[in-house]
């Protein structure tokens, strides 16, 4: 069945809509950050104000167009969040877990990616701005992006606890433990508030490279597991509304 047809007639269509949107969102996100704006891997924290001016000049249009795309499509981050919230609702745990996850990650979007988009856009739109201020915008962008991991930390722990307490087998238990590993690497980014160079700076080997490796694996794994969750779900084809799951 083609994607379009399945999104119209499949009983699981809203799940598939959310899943394909998740894949599309993470792909766009990677393209914007790694290719268009070249803000990942992150810029060097030790740039002088004058070097920051050159940094902005070097990727002027990339920053403006790339982050404009995030402004358009960033709202689709809600699709993976809602799919994960739904997965927690399928588990034999209180709805409190699901709702905590939903609210934590929905709000995490603002410091998580909106701030860097605003800071870098403001930086790029006036190349003639005082270099000291461009420097400040540069710091604001990268630090808000890298340094606001508390919500992701607690969110991962909520998801972990739900998976480990669940008796419905919604996710394999090793993925519960992978959530713990991911939560623990979120801790590692905090020193980027303190160090301007070295392995713990915002572009450091530990705070960025190792972290992104773990987060990347985690993301690929959970997108794959959500897919198999949708495939396994038996929602029936009877008339609706007679929701299988309310809440």
């Amino acid at each position: 069945m083609s994607l379009g047809a399945s999104l119209r007639t499949d009983p699981k269509r809203e799940l598939w809509f959310a899943w394909y949107s998740t894949v599309a969102f993470y792909s766009l996100y990677s393209v914007v950050f790694f290719v268009l704006t070249r803000t990942q891997p992150p810029g060097r924290p030790w740039l002088t104000p004058e070097q920051t001016v050159a940094w902005f000049a070097d990727r002027h249009w990339g920053l403006l167009v790339g982050f404009a795309l995030i402004f358009v499509l960033g709202g689709f981050s809600a699709t993976s969040i809602s799919l994960i919230t739904y997965s927690i609702r399928r588990m034999s745990v209180s709805r409190a877990y699901a709702y905590s996850y939903l609210i934590l990650y929905a709000i995490a979007a603002i410091p998580g990616f909106l701030f860097i988009c605003v800071a870098m856009t403001v930086g790029a739109m006036r190349p003639e701005r005082d270099p000291a201020l461009l420097h400040w915008l540069y710091d604001f962008g990268f630090l808000s992006f890298s340094g606001t991991m508390g919500v992701f930390l607690v969110g991962s722990l909520i998801w972990m606890a739900a998976i480990l307490l669940d008796k419905n087998g919604v996710f394999p238990r090793w993925f519960g433990y992978l959530n713990l590993c991911n939560a623990l690497t979120e801790v590692v980014i905090a020193p980027s508030w303190i160090f301007q160079r070295g392995v713990l700076a915002w572009n450091g080997v530990i705070a960025w490279w190792i972290d992104v490796a773990v987060f990347g694996m985690y993301t690929v794994v959970f997108i794959y597991l959500l897919r198999s969750l949708i495939q396994r779900d038996d929602l029936g084809t009877g008339p609706v509304p007679a929701p299988v799951i309310t809440g």
């Binding site: 238990r173 090793w174 433990y177 992978l178 590993c181 392995v199 530990i206 190792i210 773990v214």
Partner: peptide, 26 residues
């Protein structure tokens, strides 16, 4: 114990090993 827990033992050991490697190299 639970088989899946061993995934954590191995994965987290590797994460720590990567921190150690950075330290030894530095």
């Amino acid at each position: 114990g639970e088989g899946d827990m061993w995934f954590f033992v191995v994965f987290e050991s590797l994460v720590f090993t990567s921190y150690f490697c950075v330290y030894l190299y530095d």
